[in-house]
Structure formats: C-alpha cells, structure tokens
C-alpha cells in the first residue's frame, strides 16, 4: 500500500480582520487523499472546505493566517516550499477547476488559445502542436466540433461547455497528479451536472488521476466518489468510504446532513 498522494495534518488558522482581530476558521483539519481515488470534501457554508482546498494550492485569501499544520503532497510539505518551488507544482502537479468556469476564462482570448498557451507553458513545443493537443483535449471531454469550438470566445460557451473546457485544461492539458474540483457543478442544470460528474469519474479512472471534489451536495458525492470527508464549522466531522458515510454514519452531524439531503425520500421512491 503506497502512501496517500495528499495528506493534510492538523491544519488550523484564522481570518484576520482589518483591526487585527482573529476569527478562527480551521481547527485541526486532517485527512488523506489516497492515490487514484476521488475524495469528496463535503460541507455547508462556512465549513472551511473551500479554504482547505485553496490552501493546498497556496491560493488562500491573504487575510487567512495559518497557525499550525502540514500539507504533505507526495511526501513533501507544501507549506515549507519557496514561492518558485510552489509555482512548479501549481498547475503542473496539482491543478484546480473552479465553480464559475466562464469567470475563470479570459474573455478576450479564444478558448483554444488559452488552453494552448497553458500547454506550451507546461510542455513546450510549437504553437501548432499545442493547438492540436488542445483540440484533442476538448474532444476528450466530449465538446462537439472541437476545432470550431477552439476558435470561439468564452462568452460563446454555455456554462456546461465552459466547465468541460476547464476540465480539459485542468485535467488533460496540465496533466496533473492531483485534480482539485471546487464545486464544479454548482449552478449548472441537473442534466448537465450529471454529465459533468460522469466525465470527471471517467477521466479519473482512465488516466489514473487523483481527485479532490469540494461540494455542498451529498447527491453528487454518492455516485462518483470513493471517499468522503465531512466538514462542519472548520472541523473534520467524519471521514470514511462513501459507502460507510452513507450507510453507517457515526457522527450525529453526518446523519443530520444526510437526512436533510434526502428530504424524507425513501429508497423505493427513488428506484421507482
């Protein structure tokens, strides 16, 4: 059994307000993301799930002050790395997909150019080769007519298509070992959401990626994820396999969250 790709140990920290007061927001957050799995971090508003994810990449808001903890990626503590070492990891070995894909794309460049630029940055090579790889990546995430789509601007993409392009960028163009997905389907329609989640599951399995899915929606988790980390108010409440969390939750908070997510539906109602 190899060591987990990512291990967060005792991460704690506070937000500093302009007048210097500290509000604790993360309390001794610890969990591991084993290689080749999709691990979900589930929590409601204010649970600290996004802050934890952003901390992995070192892109947490500047008002956040860490007081303790380590983030071990492939055995190295990311928090001790120099900025230039971190740049070598960010986007190359760890990449992220944000919630609002269209906001994450630059509106004045074509989608293809943006992906190709990142490809050249990471892998070098000629512009035409990068564009060819970009089009292959767009095709791999089931964007129809990828040659034409690559020449379009972000505003010409629907929310679902833009999210596919972002996944192509983060998962295929960057070729990372760890893919962080921060609420990738929030705000998308359910039919689109289902397709995106399927795509994520396929990519992880086919390419041997490790993924960390940040979400508030337990419904999204059940079908796609291998492991679940439940967070509440800056603490890890419970971790376990998806099956264990859904069928044998040990903590009261997990049980309440599950009950609220199921809204009194019985299994028979769903099978019907």
């Amino acid at each position: 059994m190899s060591s987990p790709l990512l291990e967060i140990e005792g991460l704690s920290g506070s937000f500093r307000s302009p007048n210097g007061a500290l509000t604790p927001v993360l309390h001794d957050v610890s969990f591991a993301v084993p290689r080749g799995t999709v691990t979900a971090i589930v929590g409601e508003t204010g649970s600290g799930k996004s802050l934890t994810a952003l901390s992995i990449l070192g892109i947490q808001p500047p008002t956040f002050q860490r007081s303790a903890g380590r983030i071990l990626f492939d055995g190295r503590d990311l928090l001790t790395l120099k900025p230039e070492e971190m740049r070598g990891i960010r986007g190359r070995r760890i990449s992220i997909v944000f919630q609002d894909a269209r906001a994450a794309l630059n509106p004045v460049f074509t989608v293809g150019r943006q992906l190709a630029d990142v490809h050249r940055l990471h892998h070098g090579g000629s512009a035409s080769r990068a564009m060819k790889r970009t089009i292959e990546a767009l095709r791999a995430v089931s964007i129809p007519e990828p040659e034409r789509r690559a020449r379009q601007y972000p505003h010409e993409f629907s929310g679902g298509m833009a999210q596919r392009a972002m996944i192509a960028l983060a998962a295929l163009v960057c070729e990372p070992e760890l893919l962080i997905l921060d609420e990738p389907t929030t705000g998308l329609d359910v039919t689109i959401q289902a397709a995106i989640m399927e795509l994520i599951g396929d990519l992880v399995r086919e390419r041997g990626l490790t993924a960390c899915l940040i979400t508030h929606d337990l419904g999204v988790v059940a079908e796609t994820c291998d492991r679940v980390v439940v967070m509440n108010a800056g603490r890890v409440v419970e971790t376990g396999t998806t099956e264990a969390i859904f069928t044998r939750p040990r903590q009261d908070y997990t049980r309440r969250l599950l009950a609220a997510s199921q809204l009194g539906e019985t299994p028979e109602m769903i099978e019907a």
Binding site: S158, I192, A194, L218, G219, A222, E265, I270, E271
Partner: peptide, 24 residues
C-alpha cells in the same frame, strides 16, 4: 431525462440514465 439525472444522496442507487444529446 431530468428525473434520471437528479443526484440522489443515497448509497448504491444505480439508475438507468436517459441521456439527451447536446444542450438546450
């Protein structure tokens, strides 16, 4: 398609998913 795509917060629910091609 809409019903079969709705996420379900429950373990082991495997549904026949009816897929629509393309987008709206």
């Amino acid at each position: 398609a809409l019903l079969s795509a709705a996420p379900v917060a429950r373990w082991g629910v495997k549904r026949q998913r009816l897929r629509l091609a393309g987008e709206i």
